[in-house]
Write a protein that binds this DNA or RNA. Structure first.
Length: 645
RNA sequence: GCCGAUGUAGCUCAGGGGUAGAGCGUUUCCUUGGUAAGGAAGAGGUCAUGGGUUCAAUUCCCAUCAUUGGCUCCA
């Protein structure tokens, strides 16, 4: 008998050799059909694998990522089996489970190309194989045997993988006619898969190396219930509806022009209004925190970036330099604002009493992005950072960090991002020589970040080795209304630039000292942030931010004059209102305003004109009844005050 | 940059070797209305661009550009 400890610390005895399925069944027969994988002493196991010693276990179902992982991993293998059946010369790379489903990288052989149109047939084959409920069998073999098996099969990718494995024993999983090299875990059989959808097909380099052969990657997702697939497809549809590129066009926020160039957004009046409102919002917050606005040009001498080190690191991947016709001076489009800000710092000598110096600029920068990488507003070649650089003494680092975190959290709160986390990127302790700056400074900076996060009660993940070469950083990730993750703001400590630009301040000891720089951008870039905001809100921006707060809708042309006077009154009360004077019926005007996601519709007809009132309709909610204009103005003010509190 | 897909009216899309269609939008007219689409008529396209095959190309082929799903990269 062995002792099995459950997550609630209760202990029960089982026969040695018991497996996850048995344990689940002993708790509740229904659980047996729901459980997908089992954690055994912290390792994730197949449900059918025998447990022979005392163990602490945890059963994983669909709602656990460990459960989903096994489900999708088995799905990847089943897809491979289907591919093997349909394409005899298919060779297999790797096929893992991912956040939403799984993929398999395959090499279909010379002269064979897989196309989107082929997916349906593969999908059909997977369903057919799933219905056979083949058992998935785990087997340990030696490395030699594994090599022999896969080289006989001609799977050169698998043999390469095996050669890189260090273990003496290798695990194989077999279901039906397909055997794969795999660490597992897997489902007990393929019958768990009730719904299958292959989502896309794409090229992917073998082992992520662009110098190596490009394989065909097939993405798919599977579910234990048909209904779950339908829900997933609905979610995809919802995501499509919220796509900022689509809403950006429909709400007339921004556009792109082939004539201007790829990755260079054109902000339309409404988008500009929205963006400028975000900018003034942040400017106001920054002013309270002691930032000073500066303005610097869009280009700078090449030497500036040689000094900063950016030219050496990124020069080859930048827009080509610009030269003047007469003098042959060489300029670069500004890829970063910090070198310019360093020069502003050097405008005059600084005393330790001047620090911290907080320099903010909505600085537009230009970076060459590979053509395949451009995407709407989230990935562009010209964008505006809500940049600032804090020049401070090392002992001020923590306090400054806390202030920046406060600004970022205030922004998240105001813009209704309730779900966020932060990633602390530290040095790789194994490779300290990769980083610039003294050990002492790094330790100070890293602990300043960690302590600042702890004081703010931030949910953080620590990543070793993810720091930039010039300093540790803190990145903020938000989850939007659909649960998708976006990286937004960033705070980075920099020891490099003060060094390179020879920045100094005179300390209390009358000696020269090196300041520390903090780069920070709460939004990241205005383009990216607006894109995320569009998708998060589905275009229904908060009242304080939305370009048009209210639309005046006269019932018929007879009331146009009253409506136009009303518009003046509203605009004089700082309410951003527009008017719909089209020769359309009121139902139509309402529909269009609803679709433009204007928060308030103000309907005026005979009744309203007589009483000097307006009939108020809230977008997405409907009729709110009649009221005086002053009352409405108060409602608007109260709502925006609440949003900005 | 690499692999796959796509490119037809402002938008969403259908079509197809014999030089083009729908819905929405837009314009004009009729209608003057009460909380999510009133009616009629009209305008609008070198079918992304450049080559090739063909008697004939928007359609087939090639290239380029752009968009797009991934990969790689990201100060």
């Amino acid at each position: 008998m062995i002792k099995i400890t459950f997550p609630d610390n209760s202990v029960r005895e089982f026969e040695s050799g018991v497996n996850g399925l048995d344990i689940a069944e002993s708790i509740n027969p229904r659980l047996k059909s729901e459980v997908l994988s089992i954690g055994v002493n912290g390792e994730i196991w197949d449900l059918t694998r025998a447990i022979e010693t005392d163990a602490t276990i945890q059963l994983y179902k669909w709602d656990d990522k460990e459960g989903k992982h096994a489900f999708w991993h088995t799905s990847a293998h089943l897809m491979a089996e289907a591919l093997q059946a349909l394409y005899p010369n298919m060779k297999f790379g790797i096929g893992p489970a991912i956040e939403n489903g799984f993929y398999y990288d395959v090499d279909p052989g010379e002269g064979v190309t897989l196309k989107d149109a082929d997916l349906a047939a593969i999908e059909q084959k997977i369903k057919e194989l799933a219905s056979k409920k083949c058992e998935v069998v785990r087997k340990n073999i030696t490395k030699e045997d594994a090599l022999a098996y896969f080289s006989a099969k001609g799977d050169e990718y698998k043999t390469e993988l095996i050669n890189d494995l260090q273990d003496g024993t290798i695990t194989l999983y077999t279901q039906g006619d397909f055997t794969d090299l795999c660490r597992g875990p897997h489902l007990p059989n393929t019958g768990y898969l009730k719904a299958v959808k292959l989502t896309s097909i794409a090229g992917a380099y073998w082992r992520g190396d662009e110098k190596r052969r490009q394989l065909t990657r097939i993405y798919g997702i599977t579910f234990p219930k048909q209904k779950m697939l339908e829900e997933y497809l609905l979610l995809l549809e919802e995501a499509k509806k919220r796509d900022h590129r689509k809403l950006g066009r429909e709400l007339e926020l921004f556009t792109f022009s082939q004539n201007v160039g790829p990755g260079l957004p054109l902000w339309l009046p409404k988008g500009t209004d929205l963006r400028m409102r975000l900018e003034s919002f942040l400017k106001k917050v920054q002013k309270e925190y002691g930032y000073k606005q500066v303005i610097t040009p869009h280009i700078g001498q090449k030497e500036l970036y040689v000094t900063s080190g950016h030219f050496a690191k990124y020069g080859a991947d930048s827009f080509r330099p610009i030269t003047t016709p007469q003098e042959g001076e060489v300029f670069m489009l500004k890829p970063m604002n910090c070198p310019h800000h360093c020069e502003i710092y050097k405008f005059k000598p600084h005393s330790y009493k001047d620090l911290p110096l907080r320099m903010a600029e909505f600085g537009t920068v230009y970076r060459y992005e590979q053509s395949g990488e451009l995407h709407g507003l989230t990935r562009v070649r010209g964008f505006t950072q809500d940049d600032a650089h804090i020049f401070c003494r090392p002992d001020q680092l923590k306090a400054e960090f806390i202030d920046v975190i406060d600004i970022i959290l205030y922004i998240f709160k105001t813009l209704d991002f309730k779900n966020y986390e932060a990633q602390i990127s530290l040095r790789d302790p194994e490779n300290r020589e990769k980083y610039i700056g003294s050990d002492e400074n790094w330790e100070k900076a890293e602990s300043a970040i960690i302590e600042a996060c702890a004081e703010k009660g931030l949910k953080t993940v620590v990543e070793l080795g993810e720091a930039a070469f010039y300093g540790p950083k803190l990145d903020f990730m938000v989850r939007d209304a659909l649960g998708r993750r976006w990286q937004l703001g960033t705070i980075q400590v920099d020891y490099n630039l003060p060094e390179r630009f020879d920045l100094e301040y005179v300390g209390a000891d009358n000696q020269k000292h090196r300041p520390v720089m903090i780069h920070r951008a709460p939004f990241g870039s205005m383009e990216r942030f607006v894109a995320v905001l569009i998708e998060h809100t589905a275009g229904k921006f908060p009242l304080w931010l939305t370009p048009t707060q209210a639309m005046v809708l006269p019932i018929s042309e007879k009331f146009n004059e009253y409506a136009e006077n009303l518009l003046k009154v509203l605009n004089n009360s700082d309410i951003r209102a527009e008017i719909d004077l089209r020769n359309e019926k009121i139902g139509r005007k309402i529909r269009d305003a609803e679709m433009q996601k204007v928060p308030y519709m103000l309907i005026v007809g005979e009744k309203e004109m007589e009483n000097g009132e307006i009939s108020v309709r809230r977008q997405g909610e409907g009729d709110k009844g009649s009221m005086k204009i002053a009352t409405f103005a108060e409602i608007i003010k109260a709502e925006t005050d609440k949003e900005l509190a």
